Amino acid sequence: MNTSQDELRRDLDAALQTRKELGKEYESEIVDSFLARIDSRLDARVEQRVAERLDRSGGGPSGVRGRGARLGLSIVSLVMGIPLTAIASESAGTTGLIACWIGIVGVNVASALGDRHRGRELPRDTRSEWV
């Protein structure tokens, strides 16, 4: 087992021990805390892998473009889609679930269209310092 799995096992054991000590009344808070730790570890792992792929593809934080940026956005969208789906469906039901995924798809479509638009050169007279 690697270090990450050992840490996860220790955290799970600690959560189970805490549940035994505090009782069933605090079960949901203990589970939420454990899931938050897993979520932050997952986010860190995804960010690390995205950074590694961007480094290999020649992209970087200052000049992220093209497939590397789209891949990163896609991965982050899917990772963040999981808790957002749970929150949206819990609080607003099917309507919230649909609105959540329309937003996620909209962000990805806007990014893809923006990448296509960025590839075109603007005429000299319409170019501004903001583009």
Results as ranks from 00 to 15, higher is better:
Leu35Ala: 11
Ile87Leu: 06
Ser128Val: 09
Gly103Ile: 00
Ser33Glu: 12
Val64Met: 11
Trp101Asn: 03
Glu121Met: 11
Gly58Cys: 04
Gln48Tyr: 12
Leu35Asp: 06
Thr3Pro: 11
Ile98Leu: 05
Glu52Ala: 13
Arg45Glu: 11
Ser62Ile: 14
Thr85Cys: 02
Val50Cys: 01
Ile38Gln: 01
Arg70Ala: 12
Arg41Gln: 09
Gly93His: 07
Glu25Arg: 08
Arg65Asp: 11
Arg70Leu: 06
Leu78Ala: 04
Ala51Glu: 04
Arg37Gly: 08
Glu129Val: 13
Gly59Phe: 02
Arg127Ser: 10
Leu78Cys: 04
Gly68Val: 00
Ala14Pro: 06
Ala15Met: 03
Pro123His: 05
Ser33Met: 13
Ile38Thr: 04
Glu21Phe: 14
Arg53Glu: 06
Ser62Pro: 07
Gly58His: 04
Gln5Trp: 13
Thr126Asn: 14
Thr3Gln: 12
Ser77Gln: 01
Arg49Cys: 12
Ser33His: 12
Arg19Pro: 05
Arg127Phe: 07
Glu52Lys: 10
Pro61Arg: 05
Leu78Glu: 01
Leu84Val: 09
Glu21Asn: 03
Glu21Val: 14
Gly114Ser: 10
Leu8Glu: 14
Gly81Asp: 02
Gly60Asn: 08
Gly60Trp: 00
Gly60Ile: 00
His117Cys: 08
Ile75Tyr: 06
Arg116Phe: 08
Gly66Cys: 03
Ala36Ser: 13
Ile98Asp: 00
Ala69Asn: 06
Gly81Ala: 00
Ser77His: 00
Gly72Val: 00
Val76Asp: 04
Cys100Tyr: 00
Glu90Val: 14
Asp39Cys: 14
Val46Cys: 07
Thr85Asp: 13
Ala110Arg: 02
Asp55Arg: 11
Gly66Asp: 00
Val64Asp: 10
Ile102Phe: 07
Asn108Trp: 06
Asp6Glu: 13
Ile102Trp: 07
Asp115Ile: 08
Gly81Leu: 01
Ser4Leu: 13
